[in-house]
């Protein structure tokens, strides 16, 4: 099955990305994690995302477009990236999620990807 791992991070985590002393450890942890996933051959796709301050949220109500600065929800843990992995079951997906650096400081939401309509397996 395909699962999406939605990685969140705290403001501290985001700050570490460019912090002169902490950036090394931050990126090292992510590189090690992605490396392990690649070695296991389970990655379908994935990206890291820029800081939540770069987000812009759009809503259309009654045909009118509302554009707003910032992410859709103002919470302590913000979306920082995603991965789609192909593994046997939820337990395997949870095991990968638990190993991610995001799980240790914020959280990872694991969701099965909606299968293509008609049940055909691509």
């Amino acid at each position: 099955m395909h699962y999406m791992l939605l990685m969140t991070e705290t403001a501290d985590d985001f700050a570490k990305r460019t912090h002169p002393e902490e950036a090394g450890a931050y990126w090292g942890a992510w590189n090690a994690y992605i490396g392990a996933l690649q070695q296991a051959g389970v990655i379908v796709k994935g990206d890291g995302l820029q800081r939540p301050e770069t987000a812009t949220t759009v809503r259309v109500r009654a045909g009118e477009r509302h554009v707003q600065d910032g992410p859709f929800a103002d919470t302590k843990e913000q979306l920082a990236g995603y991965l789609v992995i192909e593994v046997e079951d939820l337990d395997a997906a949870l095991a990968w999620a638990a190993r991610s650096p995001a799980a240790a400081s914020a959280s990872v939401e694991v969701r099965p990807v909606l299968p293509p309509p008609g049940g055909a397996t691509a």
């Binding site: 099955m1 046997e88 079951d89 337990d91 997906a93 969701r111 099965p112």
Partner: peptide, 10 residues
């Protein structure tokens, strides 16, 4: 069923 829980001993 939908989240695909593992049917095996832990």
């Amino acid at each position: 069923r939908d989240a695909g829980l593992r049917f095996a001993l832990p």
